[in-house]
């Protein structure tokens, strides 16, 4: 690890300890591990996008194995690999042999046989990355498994909050909207609570389970009630594509109850941060004036996404391997 950091001149990377080859979720990470990723990511984030970075991933090949459509996460991972000098291959799963009946495991093994160091996987079924991790030699990075986890998204959300507030300890963060179908929500719940934030889940009863309360999380059905207490509002996208039947009467009614608009913003703390994992449904979870307004850090999140993914790839592909050697 010391070697890895001493190579760098433009970039000061901290001396870190990291043992995981895979990043499957935040549930299994300790507070210490989460702090490590955020610390490394914040160093990457300080380097301007146009400035050169050391080629930490030189000689490494990463495959983007996306079984679900995605533009931003796929692009963000690709950019992270390239900025650190690695090779990235985009595997368009929908157009491949999956339509010919090949299983996800066969596909992954085939790709691995071509020689890759890491598989970044997105899949519609929870546990798909875990299935790969059990069966592949390569590192597996979960880029979203159904409604289960999306660890790099939560990490970039946390990094964004840290940059504005310095600490998560004691902050009140509301995750608003479709909690039931949101992998971003689940990863945020684990990460935020582990670092000492108070989490409120807010949305219609059909999309927010009271069972979360047993895990130390607050549940509310009323955005107006909780609004004045929140330091951060993370407005989750309504996942129309995952819902088996519509869990609320109409988009109009949803927006009436849960959309973040200018009137609601006036009820919030003056320094409230407005976040959204995107892509956003303008006018549903968030109105355009709020999304583009001064409280919004939505684009900052996108920028931080690249830094977080560089940190995760470096830790899992470089540091974990060094640590693994005797």
């Amino acid at each position: 690890m010391a070697q890895a950091s001493s190579q760098l001149s433009a970039l000061e990377l901290p001396s870190v300890s990291w043992r995981r080859r895979h990043l499957l979720g935040l549930e299994e990470l300790s507070a210490e591990e989460i702090r490590t990723v955020l610390e490394v990511a914040s160093r990457f984030a300080q380097v301007p996008a146009t400035a050169p970075l050391p080629e930490l991933l030189q000689g490494k090949t990463v495959v983007n194995l996306f079984f679900e459509d995605s533009t931003r996460t796929r692009t963000s991972f690709a950019l992270a690999v390239r900025r650190l000098g690695g090779e990235v291959i985009d595997f368009q799963a929908s157009a491949s042999s999956l339509s010919k009946g090949e299983t996800i495991l066969d596909t992954a093994r085939t790709i691995e046989a071509m020689g890759v160091d890491a598989v970044v996987i997105r899949h519609r079924t929870p546990g798909a990355p875990h299935l790969l991790a059990q069966n592949l030699q390569a590192s597996v990075i979960n880029a979203g498994d159904g409604p289960h986890e999306h660890p790099t998204q939560a990490l970039l959300d946390m990094l964004t909050i840290l940059q504005h507030r310095g600490s998560l300890e004691g902050l009140t963060v509301a995750l608003v909207g479709d909690i039931a179908h949101s992998r971003t929500a689940r990863s945020n719940i684990w990460g935020l609570t582990r670092l000492g934030a108070h989490v409120i889940l807010c949305g219609p009863a059909t999309l927010v389970s009271r069972r979360w309360e047993a895990l130390g999380v607050e549940v509310s059905y009323s955005l107006d009630d909780i609004l004045p207490r929140c330091d951060v509002l993370n407005l989750l996208r309504i996942q129309f594509e995952r819902q088996q039947s519509r869990p609320f009467p109409s988009v109009r009614e949803y927006a009436h109850l849960y959309a973040m608009n200018r009137q609601r913003l006036e009820q919030a703390k003056p320094n409230v941060l407005i976040m959204a994992p995107g892509p956003i449904n303008r006018g549903v979870e968030i109105t355009a004036d709020v999304a583009d307004g001064s409280h919004s850090v939505i684009l900052k999140q996108v920028t931080n996404g690249v830094a977080v993914r560089m940190a995760v790839l470096w830790l899992c592909l470089c540091v974990a391997q060094q640590d693994g050697q005797p």
């Binding site: 546990g127 986890e149 689940r186 979360w212």
Partner: peptide
């Protein structure tokens, strides 16, 4: 019964139908 496992805390955490 449109799911793959029992509805409870575990399914909530795993995000499984």
């Amino acid at each position: 019964a449109q799911g793959v496992m029992h509805e409870g805390t575990v399914s909530m955490i795993l995000g499984l139908k």
